[in-house]
């Protein structure tokens, strides 16, 4: 079978499951909204300093809830035995990775766009061309986040303490994504002219390429048993 079609079948399966029981989706969005609201209480909402911190607030709200989804993405597979079926099927493990990764990535992007909409309203920005650039950053940042996250989630799915372990392993690794995304967003939303935006986008792309490739190669070792 065509490899691309195979990847799509795998991703579609996951997305269909998410679509039919959108509980995880709603939990993730709700958690993100909570973070946006809590930051409003934590900082003085009207001040200039808070205004300048909004890109950071947005990215905390986008990345932390993503953990919920990643943790779940292999749980059902383990419990229902789907994972064994997938492993036993005559597909390359790299293809399995790409299918899982694309499903996680698509899920995160949809959640993130909703959260971005809420962010624009809560923090009084406007729906303009600038937001398209932020959306582009979201798309790129989610690739790296989902790639590393999928590898770690698969690895931890057999460990009892996975809920705690996933953020502990994932966040040190994605520090470049956090830096690039927050600073890129800052250039777009806060600074008058975007000087270094290209650089941050390049950094995100480099991260994405390296870790999608690493996930593709290493996935075999994290799902084999």
């Amino acid at each position: 079978m065509n490899q691309v079609a195979l990847i799509w079948i795998l991703a579609e399966k996951d997305l269909k499951v998410e679509y039919r029981s959108p509980q995880a989706f709603l939990n993730t969005v709700f958690f993100a909204l909570l973070i946006l609201v809590i930051f409003n209480f934590a900082f003085d909402p009207g001040s200039q300093a808070t205004r300048e911190a909004t890109p950071g607030i947005l990215w905390v709200a986008l990345l932390f809830p993503g953990i919920i989804q990643l943790n779940r993405s292999f749980q059902a597979e383990r419990e229902e035995g789907t994972l064994y079926g997938l492993i036993l099927s005559p597909t390359d493990r790299g293809v399995l990775f790409l299918g899982k990764f694309i499903a996680n990535w698509a899920f995160l992007v949809v959640v993130d766009f909703l959260v971005l909409g809420a962010f624009v309203i809560f923090y009084n920005f406007s729906f303009s061309v600038q937001m398209l650039w932020v959306a582009w950053i979201i798309i790129l940042a989610s690739v790296g986040f989902a790639a590393v996250g999928t590898v770690f989630a698969a690895m931890l799915s057999s460990i009892r303490t996975r809920e705690v372990l996933l953020p502990i392993l994932l966040f040190p690794i994605i520090i470049p994504i956090i830096l690039a995304a927050v600073n890129g967003t800052q250039e777009i939303l806060i600074l008058e002219e975007a000087q270094f935006l290209d650089r941050w986008l390049q950094l995100l792309i480099a991260f994405d390429v390296i870790f999608v490739a690493a996930g593709f190669l290493l996935f075999d070792y994290v799902v084999a048993d």
Partner: peptide
Amino acid sequence: KFSAVFGIIAFLDVPIVWMSIRW
């Protein structure tokens, strides 16, 4: 296996971390 995978991913990350923090 898992420690090896994490060690490899973490090492690949080091130059990117370094660059991003410098920028």
